[in-house]
Design a protein around this nucleic acid. Structure first.
Lengths: 211, 211
DNA sequence: CGGCGTCTCTACCTTAAGGGGGAGCGGCGG
DNA sequence: CCGCCGCTCCCCCTTAAGGTAGAGACGCCG
């Protein structure tokens, strides 16, 4: 076969909802310059299909069974550091998107974006141009200004969100109750919350935790 | 025009994500006996398009801007008590589905359902047969066994989930702090939680509140 | 009408949570 | 090498939260 003048953008989709995959596939396959070559329903499948098909673009849902978007981005970039990954999510408060982008995902997209935006995002990423949904850049700046939680604090926050007491948290993390309180106090300060329950609300809104 | 032997099932879709609407539309329009006649992106639009097109089936997302699924079900059934509504949601813990079903929605569906299930649900509802996603019946029974919260308790719970203190809740609801505590205590008992934070976690898991 | 559930309020008591400090220790980078 | 940061632990103190118990007012339904 001779060289094709206008090669298709080969796309792999990964989303746990069949209806979303169908929607994306319909949109993509309607384009003359795009083609869906595989669809994955969970994180493991996404990685396997990436390796198998080596697509130009991978469209990846952030929340998936077995392995979430962040982990998939990591693994795929290990396989191919030049992989073009477009991360998709439902909620714009998701903290994970920053993790994905800083790890090397080329683009980020909200699921409620209109057709045109989704398609142009795929095109941009396929040409190795970064794409970020409107407003995300602004959010990134806001986020930079706000104090970030340490890993330990995120561990504690997770347990707080489950309704655990300081004593309970201490037991689970093998630390003293006093230390647990210290972490909780740090969390309250950083999230600008008065009570642990408010901290959970704030953290959830910012996408620091997923209930 | 003569009578049609096999009339199409006319469907109106309502979902705030274009990609989901596309997916559903692609699935439905591929069927020889179905047809999407309109698509809505929010609750108000959904009601307007129902009135305008009088479809055989309305597929409705539970969480939508402007007016949520419960309100749309109510309004549409006021317009046409025989309307066939299929409610769709992402999370199976959603308490609202029971409200929709008891209000007269004909079917309930999870968004991560496979193509075949979605299509057969639409067919069932179009023939006025109820359809419920597997496991929902079981959940309904579980739910019946569990104590339900009063409206006032739900009001309090909502504020608790926002991280408000008892005193704050009392002010906002124009009651005394003691009464607020009484309500919170009732909530803790009914949800089988030790602390307010755990109550929020449990309530969120059961879909009693949306953060 | 008489009971039942809801919402309201009360008092007392125990425990957990939050605020304000200080301090030692290990790693990492200037 | 020294300082910064994260993790750990400790003190004391105030306040909020949770447990127990009782009671009055209203509306709904058998």
């Amino acid at each position: 076969m001779a060289a094709v003048v206008k090669p298709h953008i080969r796309v792999v989709l990964a989303d746990d909802h069949p209806v979303v995959r169908d929607g994306l596939a319909a949109m993509v396959n309607q384009q003359p310059d795009m083609e869906v070559v595989a669809e994955a329903g969970d994180g493991d499948e996404a990685i396997a299909l990436y390796e198998q098909h080596r697509p130009d673009v991978m469209v990846l849902d952030l929340r998936m069974p077995k392995r979430d978007g962040v982990a998939v981005v990591q693994r795929v970039l290990e396989i191919n550091p030049k992989a073009c990954i477009l991360v998709m999510t439902t909620y714009d408060g998701d903290e994970d998107i920053f993790q994905c982008l800083s790890q090397g995902a080329k683009g980020y997209l909200l699921k409620d974006a209109p057709r045109q935006e989704i398609l142009s995002a795929i095109r941009a990423v396929s040409e190795d141009r970064p794409y970020t949904s409107s407003g995300v850049a602004a959010k990134a700046l806001q986020r930079m200004a706000k104090p970030s939680l340490t890993q330990r604090e995120l561990d504690v926050l997770q347990l707080v969100a489950q309704g655990r007491s300081n004593k309970d948290i201490a037991r689970r993390l093998s630390i003293t109750e006093g230390t647990a309180k210290t972490h909780v106090k740090a969390i309250l300060t950083k999230l600008d919350a008065i009570s642990r329950t408010e901290a959970v609300a704030v953290a959830h809104k910012r996408g620091l935790i997923h209930l």
